[in-house]
Write a protein that binds this DNA or RNA. Structure first.
Lengths: 262, 262
DNA sequence: AAGTGGTCTAGACCACTAT
DNA sequence: TAGTGGTCTAGACCACTTT
């Protein structure tokens, strides 16, 4: 029924599995992807319309749209109503970077959280502004160090939490791996949004001692703000992460498997 | 025809436009999003099935699926065949960071590229490995500084290109804003993939002079590898970017508009 | 006016998971 | 066995862009 696809089938990389058939929309997506790689569809140029692809592939409109959707998600295609579908021109400045190296370690069970310091402080101008408080209001200051068991310390966390007078924070909660646990009981106030920024930084004397890294090493400074469902900030702070503990990587254009990294 | 949606309509934030009607799948998505924010659908828990949502909304299956797809893309929902659809538990370690501050500046037309140094060198062990060459083969070394007109320098680029004996590189090409121009003529060899890593770094004496920043400032080091359609590396190098010229930011969970940043 | 993508319907069969 | 999401069909109307 779909003889037009037979030609595409041997362009596929993953069909050799035998009894594991790939869905039609994936096969079509791979076929178009190959046309982009080959240069048949050139960067910035228009590719055949949905209807044309329906005819050439023998697939239904929705299936063709599904295939195109895959490639749009991959950033290979851009679609414009009334104009057509175009091959995205590669642009390294539009890259999105994902974090590696932390999740596998931190999500493992043998994590230890050590509280370096925790007390109630008066909000400084900066902290008050970021937490939506008045200067001088009470906040919880927190400094913790997170270690994978039997290993060198992974990161330092330093930040401020809202002080909820109706629910004092327990010492045990402060050692929770997931900061979210801190806000579980607090009324509406579960974390619904997190905003983060990454900046490069230098290790301070205190933090270099805590992390066992040389003074003046370069680090990632991951600044966060956690919000509740009413978009009210609940917590701000910074994760201080040695550069060897975290990788921020990105692949744009046609995805190719990454071999050994350094 | 779709009276069940009327109740959702006033939960919508963007309907006040009047004659600009929102599509049904967006309205349903917003309605589900609100249920997550309100806590009606709790983190990690299962939400009603597609069929149930069809009935309660009066929409067709595909439209419901489209709405759920939106929320999956936003990272609010996760779907598992045979089990159901669940509210994603928020996890800051799964964040993806996008770059700001460069694109608006670099894409503007008044960009100047100044070549600090460019010559043919013998590939070192490291360069040879990354470009897939043998040690000692000839490569083009390149150091450029990129400036927005009448402003302080934006970034320094330092890297190595494959030397194509059939197509000598022109001086004018080396000043191209888009490095891709360098590979336009070179046979098959248009850039099809870019892989990048971000690390924190310190400004060297030479680069601090070029950028007009104090020695020892912290910077982003954006390491890149550009590949052609055969996954052969064409160019490697590093963009050295002062920390005030680039922002890496991420929002996870329910998206809320970001007000003034610092 | 013709072409394009965006939205939407009303069905269908399948593989997988939980019971 | 029942429920769930994944895939797929064959239509339809609309807003928009280009000619």
């Amino acid at each position: 029924m779909q003889e037009a696809l037979k030609g595409d089938a041997d362009q596929m990389a993953g069909v050799e599995n035998g009894h594991a058939e790939w869905p039609a929309y994936q096969r079509l997506a791979e076929s178009i992807r190959q046309s982009i790689v080959d240069g048949a569809y050139k960067s910035g140029q228009k590719i055949p319309s949905e209807v044309a692809l329906c005819k050439s592939s023998g697939l239904a409109l929705l299936t063709v749209r599904q295939a195109l959707g895959v490639l749009v998600d991959e950033g290979l295609l851009e679609r414009f109503p009334g104009r057509g579908t175009f091959v995205t021109e590669i642009n390294w400045r539009k890259a999105a970077f994902v974090m590696h190296g932390l999740d596998d370690k931190v999500s493992s069970e043998d994590i230890r959280v050590r509280i370096v310091c925790s007390d109630v402080r008066r909000a400084s101008e900066d902290v008050a502004k970021k937490l939506g408080l008045s200067v001088g209001e009470a906040v919880v200051y927190l400094k913790r160090i997170i270690t994978v068991q039997n290993r060198t310390p992974l990161l330092v966390q330093e930040g401020y939490l809202l002080l909820d007078p109706f629910r004092p924070i327990m010492e045990a909660e402060l050692a929770s791996t997931y900061l979210i646990g801190l806000f579980k009981g607090s009324g509406q106030g579960l974390i619904k949004t997190a905003k983060m920024f990454i900046k490069p930084g230098l290790l301070s004397q205190e933090d270099s001692a805590l992390l066992g890294h040389p003074l003046g090493s370069v680090v990632f400074r991951l600044q966060y703000t956690f919000y509740d469902s009413a978009a009210k900030p609940l917590a701000i702070g910074t994760f201080i992460i040695p550069d060897d503990a975290l990788t921020l990587s990105s692949t744009i254009g046609v995805q190719i498997p990454l071999e050994g990294e350094d």
